[in-house]
């Protein structure tokens, strides 16, 4: 059996606004569009993924928050309706998705062997979180690949951003090992925004782009600093500065997704592909991809 490998790592923010703006048949809400910079970026990245041969998507989400260890989806199919608890007016999405349980269990075992507290989630009534649904929908609207969702253990709040870096990196290493041993080709997804201060009021028409802007300039400057480092292939430095970034911008990086993904990829020193940056209800969002293949890596934007 050939060694498994990580064929791409995507930073894929999950504002439900982006699915809402797309008007897919699965979503009950209707929009007049909005947030094209991000949606067109997502469409371009989705086209790139179509040209990559892979078996499964493994996604780390901050909206499955667990305090007692890291949990993994552990049943082959989940079918239900995901209603966003914060933006239910925008996101009521009927999903029907497949899970690569074999890969999920292998990653869980590898993590346990590393001393990480883990749990398989095998309750058929469990609702898959909207972060998973949004990022996966935008990266693969056909839903023709099985996924694995990994929960976000709340290390940043419970201990510190530094502990989160240690734990999420160890989890990433363990997942990479399991992927290698599985013989599978896998796309990793870290599902989150960068700066994460929201406006607490919503425009009467949420997709009214004349109302959309970053919460404040400081958030923007921080986001650009991070994007610049990603472009320059300084992924280790992104992680080193993350405790301060997370604190200063209330960043959604606190969930550990990007740390986990870059840790699994061995903190790549090649440039990230940038597909777009835009604010959504004040938060900063970048779509980025780390393509380890020198022949297919592009300079996108």
């Amino acid at each position: 059996m050939a060694k498994g490998q990580i064929v791409a790592g995507c930073l894929a923010p999950h504002p439900p606004h982006l699915v809402y703006a797309d008007n897919p048949p699965q979503n009950e809400a209707y929009s007049e569009g909005g947030w094209e910079t991000l949606r067109w970026g997502y469409q371009r990245l989705a086209r790139k993924l179509k040209n990559i041969d892979y078996d499964a998507i493994v996604i780390f989400t901050p909206h499955w928050q667990t305090y007692i260890g890291t949990h993994f989806l552990g049943l082959p199919e989940f079918k239900s309706k995901s209603v966003d608890p914060v933006f239910p007016n925008l996101f009521r999405y009927n999903y029907d998705l497949q899970v690569d349980v074999e890969l999920s269990e292998a990653m869980r075992d590898a993590a346990s062997q590393e001393g990480i507290i883990t749990k398989m989630m095998t309750n058929p009534d469990f609702r898959v979180d909207y972060g998973t649904i949004t990022s996966c929908h935008l990266l693969n609207p056909e839903w023709d690949k099985p996924i694995v969702t990994i929960s976000s253990n709340r290390n940043t709040h419970y201990y510190s951003p530094e502990v989160m870096i240690e734990q999420a990196t160890a989890l990433g290493r363990a997942c990479a090992k399991a992927i290698e041993e599985s013989g599978k080709r896998v796309v990793l997804v870290a599902s989150h925004s960068l700066s994460h201060r929201h406006f607490v009021e919503e425009a009467p028409l949420p997709e009214d782009m004349s109302k959309e802007h970053i919460y404040n300039h400081s958030q923007y400057v921080w986001d650009m600093k991070i994007v610049e480092m990603m472009r320059d292939g300084k992924s280790r430095e992104v992680i080193d500065i993350m405790p301060e970034f997370t604190e200063q911008t209330i960043a959604e990086t606190e969930g550990g997704g990007l740390i986990w993904m870059l840790g699994a990829m061995g903190f790549p020193d090649f440039p990230a592909e940038i597909y777009g940056y835009q604010s959504v209800i004040g938060t900063g969002n970048v779509i980025a991809c780390w393509d380890p293949n020198d022949d297919t890596r592009e300079y996108v934007l």
Partner: peptide, 21 residues
């Protein structure tokens, strides 16, 4: 909640809930 204060108003709220942890 993020957009202000949300108030549950569905006359009959029916579902099966599962805790994250």
């Amino acid at each position: 909640s993020i957009i202000g204060h949300q108030i549950q108003a569905l006359e009959k709220a029916i579902w099966t809930h599962v805790d994250d942890d």
